[in-house]
């Protein structure tokens, strides 16, 4: 009996030693020399692997940071300035500060819910529906409502409004990684600066059709009339391809364009009161002293 136990112990022990030796040799032979800094940088990253930085994942981002030696052109949107500061400290380089951003959905369909013009009955995928036809609302540029963006979001920050069939961004959760913007086959979603006090003004339409055609597609469409551009004190608004665009680095959120827009295509977010048409006297309009600063490098 003792004999049996002894043999078992010896055999297993010998096997263990043998494997340990083999493992050691193999580990030495195939050793990959890697900068330990990469692990440290990867440690401070959020680890969501959202791909918002344009790299394959958080580790790839860390590798890029370390091989580059600084953070020029590299930014982890979900981590924001806090992570940027930590990474910069590890690398021993300057911190690149960025304006916090958020995703906005540039579509405000009029033909949704009961007003929709057809019934889509195929695969629930925007990318596929986009190859079939215009979508239920009838606008060839509008939201298709199948939620490719919702599926793409790693942070549970974008959801479908069940009544209107368009996605709604939860600004508190959104990290501006841009995954939704990439997933949208119609390029409706844009990353914009969050703005002071979370107040933003943007054109909620990307319809490039001529005014009259666009109006037929959707009552809330931007018709490219240019009234907003005329009224803007900061010259932040440009019209291209029959669509108006507000440059968020210049916009001061005065909301003159919101009241001016004939089709209500310009949306204001985060303001306590609805925009009202200013009094006829031009001097009555309050213009904040300083425009929102451009991203600065500290």
């Amino acid at each position: 009996m003792t004999h049996d136990i002894l043999i078992a112990v010896l055999v297993l022990g010998a096997l263990g030693v043998l494997f340990a030796v083999v493992l050691y040799i193999v580990a030495q032979k195939f050793k990959v020399v890697e900068d330990p800094l990469i692990d440290e940088v990867a440690e401070v990253l959020p680890g969501a692997n959202c791909g918002g930085c344009g790299k394959a994942g958080c580790r790839a981002f860390a590798e890029a940071c370390v091989s580059q030696g600084n953070m020029e052109g590299l930014r982890c949107a979900p981590g924001g300035d806090a992570v940027a500061a930590k990474v910069a400290e590890l690398l021993g380089c300057a911190v690149v500060q960025g304006e916090p951003q958020v995703a906005v959905v540039r579509c405000n369909p009029a033909n949704c819910g009961d007003q929709r013009r057809s019934n889509y009955d195929g695969l629930r995928s925007c990318a596929f529906q986009n190859t079939v036809y215009t979508g239920e609302g009838g606008c060839p540029f509008g939201c298709l409502g199948c939620g490719d963006c919702v599926a793409a979001c790693q942070f549970d920050a974008i959801h479908m409004d069940p009544e209107r069939g368009v996605p709604v961004v939860d600004a508190d959760k959104c990290t501006a990684c841009g995954a939704c913007a990439k997933a949208c086959p119609r390029r409706i979603i844009e990353l914009r600066n969050k703005g002071k006090k979370d107040r933003r003004v943007y054109v909620s339409c990307v319809n490039k059709e001529k005014g009259a055609v666009a109006m037929k597609s959707c009552a809330n469409a931007c018709i490219g009339c240019g009234k907003c551009a005329k009224v803007c004190p900061m010259e932040a608004i440009t019209i291209a391809d029959n669509v108006s665009y507000i440059d968020y680095t210049k916009c001061i959120a005065c909301r003159k364009c919101v009241t001016e827009c004939p089709t209500k295509a310009i949306k204001d977010v985060g303001f306590p009161t609805p925009a009202v048409k200013p009094a006829p006297k031009p001097e009555a309009v309050e213009v904040p002293a300083q425009p929102v600063a451009e991203p600065v490098k500290a």
Partner: peptide, 8 residues
């Protein structure tokens, strides 16, 4: 009714 649309 609304027309149904789907791929073939």
């Amino acid at each position: 009714n609304l027309l149904n649309i789907s791929g073939s």
